[in-house]
Design a protein around this nucleic acid. Structure first.
Lengths: 140, 140
DNA sequence: AACAAAATGTTATGATATAACGTTTAAAGA
DNA sequence: TCTTTAAACGTTATATCATAACATTTTGTT
C-alpha cells in the first residue's frame, strides 16, 4: 500500500530513469547522442535527441547529473544533490572524469567575483590533465 | 625599411587581425558565426566558418583570445598573454563577461586535483550571475 | 631560387541542440 | 471520483556549432 518511492527519489519518469541509469553505467561522460545510441535507451522507446535532452534537463535540475561544458557531455553525479560548487578533473588520455567538491574554493572564487560587484549564482570549474592511472603511463 | 611589427605582436595575418579586432570591438562574447556575420569580416574576404575557426585557434594559441565554453563563444583577452588560469564572470542579464585572474585560486584548485593524483594542465572557471550594472536593476 | 611550413579558399558534412505543435500521463483540488 | 492543470512525451523539422578533405597561396628560411 506504500507509495513506490517515499522520499529516496522524487519518482523519476521512465525516460529519466533510463538516462540516469545509462550515465551511471558509463565510465566516461556521454553526449546526448551517445546516450541515444545505447540499446537500453532504444528499448525504452527513446529515439529522438529531444527526448534525451528533456530527460537530461530534468536530471540536471534535480542535481543528479552534471554537464561538462568543455566536452558537451554529461555525467552522473555520484555525490547526490549538493549545494556547493563542483569541479571536474578531465583526463585527456582516457577521457574519464573525477568530480571534486569545492566548498572552500567556492568562497574564494565567489569572493573574487564579489570584489568586482558581481553577484554569483553558479560556479563551474573544469580542469584537464592526466588521471592517476594515465599519469604513470609514458606519454603517448 | 623597418619591419612592420618589431616585437609588439608576432605579426598576425590579415584574417587573424580582422578577427581579433572584431572581438576587441564587441562588448559581449561572440560566436564564430557572429564574427562571420560582421561587415568588416566579410570585407576582409572571410566567408566560411572554417576561416573564422582557424583564426580563432591561432589567436587562442597566442593567448590573445579566450573561449567561453558555456557559451560556445569567444572574447578578446584584455590582459595580454599570461600563464595563470583565468576565470570568467558571465552576466546572465546583459551577456557581458568580466575576466578575473586566478593566481592564488589556481594553486588551491590544482592542489585539490593533486590530492587525487591528478596532474593538471589547464584550469577553466566560469561563473554566472549578474554584473554590477544589472545587479542593481530589479530582477526581470 | 628552392624548399618547407603555415595559412588560406572551397565544398561538403558531421555533431550538438532546440522550436513548434499536438497528445498523453500524472498530480492536485473540488 | 471527477475535473482541472501541469508536466512529460512523441514527432518532425530545423537551427547552431564545428571539422574533414584537398587544392592553392603565402611566408619564412636556406
Amino acid at each position: 500500500m506504500a507509495k513506490p518511492d517515499p522520499d529516496t527519489q522524487p519518482s523519476l519518469t521512465r525516460n529519466q530513469k533510463a538516462v540516469v541509469t545509462a550515465l551511471k553505467g558509463a565510465d566516461t561522460p556521454l553526449t546526448a547522442y551517445d546516450i541515444l545510441g545505447l540499446a537500453p535507451i532504444r528499448r525504452a522507446g527513446m529515439k529522438a535527441p529531444l527526448t534525451i535532452y528533456r530527460a537530461l534537463d530534468k536530471l540536471i535540475d534535480l542535481g543528479l547529473v552534471h554537464r561538462i561544458e568543455s566536452l558537451n557531455a554529461f555525467v552522473h553525479c555520484g555525490h547526490g544533490p549538493h549545494d556547493h560548487a563542483t569541479g571536474f578533473l578531465i583526463c585527456t588520455d582516457c577521457g574519464r572524469t573525477l568530480e571534486v567538491h569545492l566548498e572552500s574554493c567556492e568562497r574564494h572564487l565567489a569572493g573574487r567575483a564579489r570584489d568586482q560587484g558581481f553577484a554569483v549564482d553558479d560556479v563551474r570549474v573544469e580542469m584537464t590533465g592526466r588521471c592517476p592511472g594515465c599519469a604513470q603511463a609514458p606519454a603517448p
